[in-house]
């Protein structure tokens, strides 16, 4: 059986932001700049930006407790036909403040009935914006990895 070697991921951007609410806007702008020219359609770029903003906001507020001295690191890679963005905080506390595997799926009816908090849409949005999401925790480092295929028209909700 012949294997085809995958090209090594090419790093397009790497930056760290202080954990200050609102800095997710800087992250999405810098990621958008890094992937410009890769061929993502405007609609797919909007989705990637929303996913990056949500992941960064969670890292700032829930991972790092909005402690400005703790950085959120964002890295952008291209690997073949995939754009990969990693967002890493130092809190390891999951998305929306709870571990991802215990995060409640938001349900509008339950929210309108007062059975769920109005908030808690972050992880749901991320999952639906990108082609895959993978979360790892190593010690204090909590990383959300977002993947979007270049050239795809549809975004598949899913998780690695």
């Amino acid at each position: 059986m012949t294997s085809v070697a995958r090209p090594a991921p090419r790093r397009l951007a790497s930056f760290a932001l202080p954990s200050v609410p609102g800095n997710e806007r800087i992250a999405l702008a810098q990621v958008a700049e890094a992937v410009a020219g890769l061929g993502l359609s405007p609609g797919r770029l909007d989705k990637l930006k929303t996913a990056v903003a949500e992941a960064t906001m969670n890292a700032i507020e829930h991972g790092n407790d909005s402690r400005a001295e703790l950085p959120v690191r964002v890295e952008v890679f291209q690997s073949g036909t995939e754009v990969i963005v990693t967002v890493t905080d130092l809190g390891g506390r999951g998305v929306d403040g709870v571990p991802e595997d215990r995060a409640e799926v938001p349900d509008l009816d339950r929210k309108l009935n007062g059975e769920q908090d109005s908030r808690g849409w972050g992880l749901f949005l991320i999952r639906h914006m990108v082609d895959a999401m993978h979360i790892t925790t190593q010690g204090d480092r909590h990383t959300v990895r977002l993947m979007m295929r270049i050239g795809s028209q549809d975004t598949r909700a899913g998780e690695d």
């Binding site: 997710e24 806007r25 929303t50 903003a53 949500e54 906001m57 509008l108 929210k111 309108l112 007062g114 908090d117 109005s118 908030r119 808690g120 849409w121 972050g122 749901f124 949005l125």
Partner: peptide, 19 residues
């Protein structure tokens, strides 16, 4: 210009009030 998950949650609160 920009809406995030917090804004969606806020719209849900708005909707509850209107309901």
């Amino acid at each position: 210009e920009y809406m995030n998950s917090g804004g969606i949650g806020m719209l849900v609160t708005f909707l509850i009030r209107a309901n």
